[in-house]
Design a protein around this nucleic acid. Structure first.
Length: 288
DNA sequence: GAATCGTGGGG
DNA sequence: TCCCCAAGATT
């Protein structure tokens, strides 16, 4: 146990948020749904859809029994709607391969659609108390600062970073799981990307970055995501139109969502390819 | 490894 | 206002 463990675990015990998927009665499915929704989407925007989702589909089997379009519509405006499709596909796979129960083993989890290393580790750790390195953007930032002394981690996790996280992971599975969520919470609430609250940090005395005087980031430029006029914006407009309008929409109505014909057609084609949209009639489209 | 894929809130 | 970015996964 390093000098970081006790302060962070104690801080978590005192300051953790009361989130639905963290409660003792939360099912593995509730944890899994939250992890899908939280991929690139803030907690505050996930709370509502998560509750509605669990009420409507309390089990993987309940979701798998519905058309994929229902999942896409219930996904609402969480963004990246392919996640809704993948969650539905994962639920179907759970019914087929695991008798309708969310598997506890990392290998089984990571084999599910839409589940990568992070999500598999998170579900195994948070829902089943297993011992896994859980490397999300929050954890990576905390370690970058506290241990490595740099403001931001690299674009992708490095081998050295994984080794470090493995070294810091407590041996006892239950403690490891608590440690994983505690470090993540610290990154989310205190050791934030912008304006970190170092004065409130339980490891401010040990933090390499803080002790070095919070040196400014000097790595490769971190590129922001373009948005205006992109296919993503176009796809978003088309999806919003189809989501808000139950039933099929005629092609002529898509023009109002995106005037540029070439880009509109290209995006519609990609949405059809993704399975987010289906052709309902001669020139009408709908959610699947 | 880099590009792609939504959305909305806060600094 | 504008820019950054939020519990990633996939190709």
């Amino acid at each position: 146990m390093s000098t970081l463990h006790a302060p962070i675990l104690d801080w978590y015990a005192a300051h953790q948020r009361d989130l639905p998927w963290r409660r003792p009665e939360a099912s593995p499915w509730s944890v899994m749904v939250s992890e899908f929704m939280l991929q690139q989407t803030p907690v505050s925007r996930v709370l509502g859809p998560h509750e509605a989702w669990l009420t409507r589909w309390p089990t993987p089997g309940a979701l798998a029994a519905e058309p994929t379009g229902e999942a896409v519509r219930a996904w609402g405006r969480l963004g990246y709607p392919r996640r809704a499709l993948r969650l539905h596909a994962a639920a179907t796979a759970i019914v087929e391969r695991h008798g309708g129960e969310v598997p506890a083993a990392y290998d089984d989890l990571v084999a599910l659609p839409g589940v990568g290393d992070y999500t598999a580790s998170a579900i195994a750790s948070f829902a089943f108390g297993r011992r896994h390195v859980v490397l999300d953007t929050n954890v990576r930032r905390v370690f970058a600062r506290a241990v490595s002394g740099v403001e931001f981690p690299t674009t992708a996790p490095t081998r050295a970073e994984r080794d470090l996280a493995t070294t810091l992971l407590p041996e006892e599975p239950a403690v490891a799981a608590e440690w994983a969520v505690a470090v993540m919470e610290l990154g989310a609430l205190v050791c934030t990307a912008r304006s970190p609250q170092c004065g409130d940090c339980p490891v401010r005395e040990q933090c390499t970055w803080l002790r070095a005087g919070q040196p400014a980031y000097d790595g490769p430029p971190r590129r922001g995501q373009a948005w205006d006029g992109t296919d993503r914006q176009c796809r978003g407009r088309l999806m919003a139109l189809l989501r808000d309008d139950h039933g099929a929409v005629h092609a002529s109505r898509l023009v109002s969502a995106w005037p540029d014909a070439g880009q509109r057609e290209r995006c519609l084609t990609s949405l059809l390819a993704d399975g987010l949209v289906v052709q309902a009639g001669d020139e009408t489209y709908a959610l699947p």
